[in-house]
Each structure stands twice: as structure tokens, then as C-alpha cells.
């Protein structure tokens, strides 16, 4: 079959909402975009464990501690689902991990911000996971089958993350003046980076939006960001707290909340490796990988030895 015939079949499938599976023919650029996006998504889950891991040993109660452990464990699992999905496109796990450890691969910039107080655990759950969920819900319908299935699984688990975060803030918001202040401070620090999570403004896109055409994405950055703002504005009222944006106001014409300008210089600085914790995060990942090396080797040596024993018995 000619390439243009294959391309036509591929385009038709996309058009008719038929998922693309790993063995189907697909344009190289589609494969490459998916590998990049899915692996970056996987890296984000893995690095995302670090800011929260910081608070496992400092959680204020046993209840909060087991919740946090469960959440971090979920994120490890989410990383696995996504690495597996990326691998179906022909890239190897080892290559992806190498790219993360060397600093070549990207992950969500949000995880390069520090978690300074306990209230940050609540704010991360409510805002960061909340922003992630909007994206992930959309990705449940992405055109690449293995990615979509991974996202369905992730979404099922993720909603607990956001709810526990909000509930945790709710408790603080009804606490002592110090606890209330801590709650407001965490919201103040996480609000803008959460808005940045959705990526640059649609207007600044230089390329034609191939990801939308291929239905890898189904909503633009600005659409998702607006959806998030509209939701958060209502939710913050239940906490009796405020969002740190004086320009936030309901627009009668659009029936949406207008919001202030995002500091894109900060966004790009963090993306380029100059955020508060970029170096620390990569060092932590590298350290964990190095220190786990002997475990990986020992497990493999043991498996080989067991197998050799079985072969001897059979013979």
C-alpha cells in the first residue's frame, strides 16, 4: 500500500473517532508527538512525588500521613501506566528514564516549586491536581488508544487527590488564625503556577495546531485555563479564602471570570531549568536511581539463577 493510502486510512480513523492502536500505521510526527507528550506526562507523575514526599514524615496526623502515602503511591502507578503507554510506540523505558535523569526530557514545571508548609499539601491537591484533572479528563478521549486507556485509569484514581486536598484546606480554614494564614499563604503561592500549568496562551502558538487536528488534544490551553478559573473562583468561597488576583471579576458578556495577566517570564524561566527547585528535583531522581541500581541488578541475578535451576531440573 502507498504511503498516501495509509495516511488516508489514518485520517479517516481520526475523523470517525476510531482510536489508533500501537500496531496501526501512523505518521511519524503523530508517533513522535505522542511519545514526547506521554513520556513528559509520565515524568511529571514521577517528579510530582517529590514535593509531596517531603511532607510524608512531617504530616500532622497519622490519618494525613496514610492519605499522603496513598496519593504518592498512586502517582508512581500513574507514571507506570504512562511509561507503558509510551513504550507501545516503540521507545524504551530505559531511554525515557535516561532522558529524564539527564535533564533532556521535560516534566510539568509546577513540580519545580517548593512545598514550604503543610498547607501546601492541601493547595497542591486542590489546585495542582485540580488543574491536572481537567487536562486528564480531556485526554481520556485522546486519539491514541493506549494513552486514552491509561488516562481513564488515572482519572478514576485522581479525583481522591483533589478532594483530599480541598478537605485538608477546609480543616485549616476553620482553624486558628495561624492555620488560616497558612492556608491563605499556600493558595497565594500556588495559584499562579497552577494557571501556568495549562501552558502558553493560544495566541502565542507559532505552529499550526496539529495536536488538535489529530485529536491528541481536544481543548486549547486557554479553554482549559478558563474552565479552571471559573471552577476555582466558586470553590475558594467555601474556604472563606481569596485568590491572589485583583483583576479577577465576572464578565457579564462572556459569563466567565476574567483574570489578570500571567507572568510568562517566570513560566519560561522555570521551563528552562531556572525554577526554585529544578536542580534539586533532578538530583533527587538521579540519587534514587543510582541507589536503586543494586536492587535492580540483584533482582535480575536472582531471577536468572532461579531460571537456571528450573532448566537443570527439566534436563
Amino acid at each position: 500500500m502507498q504511503i498516501h493510502d495509509l495516511e488516508k486510512i489514518f485520517e479517516e480513523k481520526i475523523e470517525r473517532e476510531i482510536k489508533i492502536e500501537s500496531k496501526d500505521w501512523m505518521p511519524d510526527a503523530y508517533r513522535k508527538t505522542n511519545v514526547r507528550q506521554i513520556s513528559q506526562h509520565a515524568h511529571s507523575e514521577i517528579v510530582g512525588m517529590l514535593p509531596e514526599g517531603n511532607w510524608i514524615s512531617r504530616a500532622p496526623s497519622l490519618k494525613r500521613k496514610v492519605i499522603l502515602i496513598a496519593k504518592v503511591q498512586d502517582e508512581a502507578g500513574h507514571g507506570l501506566y504512562l511509561y507503558s503507554a509510551a513504550e507501545t510506540l516503540g521507545t524504551s523505558r530505559e531511554q525515557m528514564i535516561e532522558d529524564l535523569l539527564s535533564g533532556k526530557a521535560k516534566y510539568s514545571s509546577i513540580f519545580n516549586y517548593p512545598t514550604l508548609t503543610w498547607a501546601d499539601m492541601g493547595a497542591v491537591g486542590w489546585l495542582v491536581d485540580g488543574a491536572a484533572i481537567l487536562n486528564q479528563v480531556m485526554l481520556c478521549r485522546t486519539s491514541y488508544g493506549p494513552y486514552a486507556r491509561a488516562m481513564v485509569r488515572i482519572c478514576k484514581e485522581e479525583s481522591f487527590h483533589q478532594r483530599q486536598g480541598f478537605e485538608s484546606l477546609l480543616v485549616l480554614s476553620k482553624g486558628t488564625p495561624e492555620q488560616k494564614a497558612m492556608c491563605q499563604d499556600a493558595i497565594n503561592r500556588w495559584w499562579w503556577p497552577s494557571l501556568m500549568m495549562f501552558g502558553p496562551k493560544d495566541a502565542e502558538s507559532t505552529n499550526s495546531d496539529q495536536s488538535m487536528k489529530w485529536k491528541i488534544k481536544r481543548k486549547t490551553n486557554d479553554e482549559l485555563r478558563q474552565q479552571f478559573v471559573n471552577m476555582a473562583v466558586e470553590q475558594v468561597k467555601l474556604l472563606g479564602m481569596t485568590l491572589p488576583d485583583p483583576d479577577l471579576k465576572f464578565n457579564e458578556v462572556t459569563s466567565q471570570y476574567d483574570f489578570g495577566e500571567i507572568h510568562w517570564d517566570e513560566f519560561w524561566a522555570v521551563v528552562k531549568g531556572n525554577g526554585p527547585c529544578n536542580k534539586q528535583r533532578l538530583e533527587a531522581r538521579n540519587k534514587a536511581h543510582e541507589e536503586g541500581k543494586w536492587v535492580r541488578e540483584a533482582a535480575l541475578a536472582y531471577a536468572k539463577k532461579q531460571q537456571a535451576r528450573i532448566s537443570v531440573k527439566v534436563a
Binding site: 521535560k106 516534566y107 487536562n135 501552558g199 507559532t206 531549568g273 529544578n278 536542580k279 538530583e283
Partner: peptide, 17 residues
Amino acid sequence: KQLYGDFGEQEPGGEIA
């Protein structure tokens, strides 16, 4: 073009690599 979850391919700064 960068969409959420797709952070492009440019090299990061720093001496971590």
C-alpha cells in the same frame, strides 16, 4: 507550540545534564 503536558524539546539550563 506547547500544550499542557507537552513542554517542547528545548534544552534546559544548568549543569545537571
